[in-house]
Amino acid sequence: MTAPTRTRIGASELEIAPLALGGNVFGWTADRDESFAVLDGFVAGGGDFIDTADGYSHWVPGHGGGESEAIIGEWLRARGSRGSRADVTIATKVSTHPDHLGLAADTVRAAVDESLERLGLDEIDLYYAHFDDADTPLEETVAVFSELVDAGKIRAIGVSNYTAERVEEWFRIARAGGHHLPVALQPHYSLVERGFETNGLRAVAEREELAVFPYYSLARGFLAGKYRDAADASAAGASPRAPEAVKYLAGSGRAVLAELDRVAEAHGVELATVSLAWLRRQPTVAAPIASARTVGQLPALLAALALDLAPEELVALSAVSAPAAAAG
């Protein structure tokens, strides 16, 4: 174990510890009090980067979207965590709130104001286009995001769930129009989801010096070792995401768990720690995103800040989880 280092978010002035706390569970599987406890524990353990979205958690019956942002905003006010810019960095996203779907300019302008209000902030540190919007010209989206930077409502721009071609197009449009460039990319990427390495996104991130923040870093809990049998998905207390997680048992999934077990035992840590430490060491990755429903789940996540895997361990994990191995 070594002391955690700091990492810069692309070409921005934002610096963070290399682990992001996912806020998707706040107001969903973690109620207000548990969310506050998780946020407190994350910061106390050395974390300072929180990732959310305006649409979290609109899919829950009785919710309308914005619940996660509202809880984070209440926590920030209660804890006085904005006394210094260095205390905590907040990322949120736009395009999935039921009242503000898509990325048309007027939609983004209205959505960012509501996010600022829920979060209780004057400025959002990192603002993502959450999902590509085929119905809105990309020129319009690029321009309005740059406008928000100039207006002092956001500090930096990120893109999430875009193809490599569309990220490249964003940069072409931004440069041609003299707009602010994105500094961050948020793709689906983990030990059992390696498409990011070959679908062009990593190549774009390298060329444009984008900071990459993978989501589903623990594959819905599979890479934490929670699900070793299909029956685990229906066990008492299982996460709503369990049915998706157990699908990874097919292909190389069991072999990946076995290698994680070996490395975790060698270091005296949990599987989640090793999974995040592997991801943190991949090219272009600035910090993996991981969620915690309870305070008890935090130590394994935070331990990844200080775990340095040996070169041979990184190679072994990469080999056993490679797409070719999964196909065999």
Rank of each mutant, 00 (worst) to 15 (best):
D87W: 07
P323A: 02
A326S: 12
L126A: 04
L271W: 02
W59V: 11
E139A: 09
R155N: 10
E69Q: 09
I157V: 13
T7D: 03
V320R: 00
E114K: 13
F42L: 11
A129P: 10
I9S: 04
L260R: 01
D99A: 14
L317T: 01
R202H: 11
G46D: 02
L260N: 06
K93A: 13
A110R: 14
H63N: 12
T29R: 01
A164D: 04
D113Q: 15
L126C: 05
T52V: 14
T89C: 12
R293P: 06
L76A: 08
F36E: 00
F145W: 13
S239N: 09
E168I: 08
I50R: 02
G268S: 01
L185P: 09
L223E: 07
A245V: 01
D40P: 09
T89V: 15
I173S: 04
Q282N: 06
L126F: 13
D40Y: 00
E206H: 03
I154F: 02
D261F: 01
W59T: 12
L302W: 08
L103P: 03
V94P: 11
T29Y: 01
R241H: 11
G237V: 12
L249Q: 05
G158S: 07
E114F: 08
N161Y: 00
E169Q: 15
G200Y: 09
D40E: 09
L19R: 11
P283Y: 00
A235V: 15
A105F: 12
E74Q: 15
D51K: 07
G152S: 00
E259C: 00
L181W: 00
G195K: 10
L307Q: 09
